[in-house]
């Protein structure tokens, strides 16, 4: 009897651990951002300070040589990627690209808008009818996430897949 109880307890514990891991994985943990227009360490510091102001940001690591920043998010935080882009602009610079990895615990059909742990829904461009499972790298599409000319090229593609562009949503593609 006692043995059985222990057994059940162990099973429950393992199940809980797995669930919590899955819960932990099913969110954005880090993002990578390429910053344009900066060359000095003072500028890089300004970018970092601006990003650190965001409540959902735990840490930022800037590599000045490549002008790439790694953003680490707080656990279970709701992320605003638009605020990340705004922070870069506030510091006086521009976003070259923004990528974030998301671990999908279930498989998703990308023909729909998907809610993730961010403000707004995600529409997958160029990935229609593809199933998302496991860790997927999402590259953000939008005028705040890339140089203007590059965005203009994507615009038609976004409209084709996701319909009229809604400011509240995110448009991403997977590699």
């Amino acid at each position: 009897m006692i043995k059985n109880r222990l057994h059940i307890k162990t099973i429950i514990t393992i199940a809980l651990v797995i669930m919590s891991i899955q819960k932990g994985l099913a969110q954005f943990i880090t993002a990578e951002i390429g910053v344009d227009g900066l060359t000095c360490s003072q500028c890089s510091r300004s970018v970092e300070m601006s990003l650190l102001k965001l409540v959902f940001v735990k840490d930022v690591q800037m590599d000045l040589e490549s002008t790439i920043g790694k953003i680490i998010f707080k656990a279970d935080a709701k992320i605003s990627f638009k605020k990340i882009a705004k922070a870069i602009n506030d510091a006086g610079f521009s976003v070259r690209y923004l990528k974030a990895a998301y671990s999908f615990k279930n498989s998703y059909d990308t023909s729909n808008f998907i809610p993730l742990n961010a403000f707004g829904l995600f529409c997958f461009v160029n990935t229609k009818n593809k199933e998302l499972n496991g860790e997927v790298l999402l590259t953000f599409l939008g005028k705040e996430f890339m140089p203007k000319q590059q965005y203009n090229k994507w615009k038609i593609e976004i409209k084709k897949t996701c319909g009229e562009i809604n400011k509240e949503n995110y448009y991403v593609y997977t590699q």
């Binding site: 990578e32 003072q42 300070m49 650190l52 102001k53 690591q61 800037m62 590599d63 490549s66």
Partner: peptide
């Protein structure tokens, strides 16, 4: 010098190094 409004948050962090990492 610049006075960053969130300099305290910065100071509280361990001495940070710019790290290179692979994309």
């Amino acid at each position: 010098r610049y006075l960053f409004p969130n300099a305290k948050k910065m100071r509280n962090r361990s001495k940070m190094k710019m790290q290179k990492y692979n994309e």
